[in-house]
Computed example of a mutant assay.
Amino acid sequence: MYFEVHGLTTPNAPTLVLSSGLGGAAQFWQPQLADLVEDYRVIVYDQLGTNRSPATLPSDYRIVHMADELLTLLDKLDVSQCHLIGHALGGLVGLELAKAQPERLTSLVLINAWSSPNSHTQRCFNIRKALLASGRKDIYLQMQALLLYPPDWIVANQDKLTKEEAHHLANFPDKNNLLARIQALSMFDIDPYLGDIHTPTLVIANKDDMLVPWQRSQILVEHMPNASLTTMEYGGHACSITVPTVFNRILHRHLNAFA
């Protein structure tokens, strides 16, 4: 997988691994990098089958496979322990890691994540799949913006979004890979194991998230022994992009507890 390492280079530097959502892109974390590199070694990566990590994903692809791929990368980089910060799908990867190899995680940050399917998010996935089947990649990207960002943010950033969507349209991901990743999200269910995950965990939820009901984060906190919840009133599903100053402050507050 394509990866980048930023920040501190000392062998014992505290390490952050940032794992993004359905898009799988390292670039997703650009609003956080400058704020983190002075104090941490920061690893970002393009998930397998996305962006600069080309691959053909099998139809039975699951979140556990994504977790295994990340563990392989961590072994390659000699990372024995890290803070895992995961947005949506990336949070699900973090939960799978905490279940399988808890000794690898100093802490876990779950951003607008979930532990099992829910009917609202499944409807959103169904619409995405229908748009892919129709061949309307441009409308798929417009729908994606509606799920990621608050309405007023979309209006205020229309020029930026138009340019980004043109770029994404020209570099649209492989449809079968995208469908395999959506299916992996739809099948994920770790509810029976939440009580066994003792990794210190910060759960961040946005009350205006249009993709994932924020109450799904409450479920995580209610069943994970060492989890706490921070709710944000504004920012949408991609709050790390729309309100990075607020988000970065919350993240630093969590990480400072381990300094």
Rank of each mutant, 00 (worst) to 15 (best):
S119E: 14
H120F: 10
H120V: 10
T121L: 01
T121R: 03
Q122N: 15
Q122L: 15
Q122G: 10
R123A: 14
R123C: 13
R123D: 14
C124F: 00
N126E: 13
I127Y: 03
R128W: 05
R128A: 08
R128L: 06
K129S: 08
A130L: 12
L131R: 04
L131W: 00
L131C: 08
L132K: 00
A133K: 05
A133T: 00
A133H: 02
G135A: 13
G135C: 10
R136Q: 14
K137M: 05
K137I: 04
D138I: 02
D138P: 02
I139S: 07
I139C: 05
I139M: 04
Y140M: 05
Y140D: 10
Y140G: 00
Y140C: 04
Y140L: 09
L141M: 12
L141F: 08
L141E: 09
L141V: 10
Q142W: 13
M143D: 12
Q144R: 14
Q144F: 06
A145C: 01
L146Q: 14
L146V: 14
L146R: 14
L146C: 12
L146P: 05
L148A: 12
L148S: 13
L148R: 07
L148T: 11
Y149N: 08
Y149H: 11
Y149L: 11
P151F: 03
P151Q: 03
P151V: 07
P151E: 08
D152F: 11
W153F: 09
W153H: 06
I154T: 10
I154Y: 03
V155Q: 15
D159W: 00
K160T: 13
K160G: 10
L161C: 05
T162N: 08
T162M: 07
T162Y: 01
K163W: 07
K163R: 15
E164Y: 02
E164F: 01
E165V: 10
E165M: 15
A166M: 12
A166F: 03
H167G: 00
H167V: 06
H168P: 00
A170H: 08
A170K: 08
N171P: 09
F172H: 02
P173V: 02
K175Q: 12
K175F: 03
K175N: 11
N176P: 02
N177E: 03
N177Y: 01
L178P: 05
L179K: 04
A180K: 11
A180N: 12
A180Y: 08
R181S: 04
I182F: 08
I182G: 05
Q183G: 01
Q183S: 12
Q183H: 14
Q183N: 14
L185N: 12
S186A: 15
S186Y: 02
S186N: 14
M187W: 13
M187D: 15
M187Y: 13
M187T: 15
F188N: 08
D189S: 04
I190Y: 03
D191W: 11
D191C: 00
D191T: 15
P192L: 02
P192N: 07
P192R: 03
Y193F: 15
Y193S: 14
L194G: 03
L194H: 00
G195A: 11
D196E: 14
I197Y: 09
T201V: 11
L202P: 00
L202N: 09
L202D: 05
L202T: 02
V203M: 09
I204T: 06
